[in-house]
């Protein structure tokens, strides 16, 4: 197991790095540490931001400092393996119609599969929320099947609509805003990740498991209009 490193960030944050190479096991350990910190919140803790190989802790420098925070985290790490974060199961609906999936044919060609086979593989996999980033609600889902792991496109396309289902490398992402992207667009989802619900404003938490379910165009259109068909 790689040594854990602690690096001060500015006057109010500490980066805790658990390893260098991205792997599901390492990301799971980051998530375990994340929940352990919240279960026994050290004095002065403001927030934790989990990512693939590390976790940033922000704190109130009037109350605590980098050294005290490091000590608190070392103690939690020594207490040993907190339980694996089970992660809730979430479903995301996708319509794969051609006009909503402009890169599906190119992905199929690059993977040496038919578009239907790409869809099947995308639906068969289980994904896990590794981290959020880039923009509000952009959840990076790991678990794209190997056959579909392709590099980013050489050029980003502008104005990609919210709800686009994207893949690049081992990751999948459902966009929440109209934004440029260099990832391949293989479908469109009506599932709201920004939920406008103060109790649970985002569909996923880091560590949640995600499955995609296929819907047809009629259901997609109905759901987009706010229906419940």
């Amino acid at each position: 197991m790689a040594a854990v490193t602690f690096t001060p960030v500015s006057d109010h944050a500490l980066m805790v790095q658990l390893g260098d190479e991205i792997s599901d096991a390492l990301t799971a350990r980051v998530q375990q540490l994340d929940s352990a910190i919240h279960a026994a919140a050290p004095q002065g803790l403001l927030e934790t931001v989990p990512a693939f190989v590390n976790l940033m802790i922000t704190f109130d420098p009037v109350v605590t400092d980098h050294a005290e925070m490091e000590q608190a985290v070392r103690a939690l790490l020594q207490e040993g393996a907190a339980a694996q974060v089970p992660g809730a199961e979430r479903e995301v609906l996708v319509c794969y119609d051609d006009d909503l999936a402009p890169d599906l044919a190119a992905v199929a060609k690059a993977a040496g599969l038919s578009p239907e086979a790409v869809i099947e593989q995308h639906l068969a996999a289980e994904y896990r929320v590794g981290m959020y980033g880039f923009a509000p609600g952009y959840a990076y889902l790991s678990g794209v099947p190997e056959a579909l792991q392709l590099p980013r496109k050489p050029k980003a396309l502008r104005d990609i609509p919210a709800g686009s289902v994207l893949i690049a490398g081992p990751q999948c992402l459902v966009t929440t805003l109209t934004m440029p992207t260099g990832w391949s667009i293989i479908g469109r989802s009506p599932t709201e990740i920004l939920r406008n619900d103060p109790e649970r404003p985002f569909l996923f938490d880091v560590g949640d498991r995600v499955r995609f379910a296929r819907i047809d165009r009629d259901r997609y259109e109905t759901l987009c209009k706010g229906g419940t068909a």
């Binding site: 500015s10 944050a13 980066m15 990512a51 693939f52 590390n54 940033m56 922000t58």
Partner: peptide, 10 residues
């Protein structure tokens, strides 16, 4: 580097 958290002022 592997994408990691950023804070204001970075």
């Amino acid at each position: 580097i592997p994408s990691e958290p950023i804070t204001r002022g970075a």
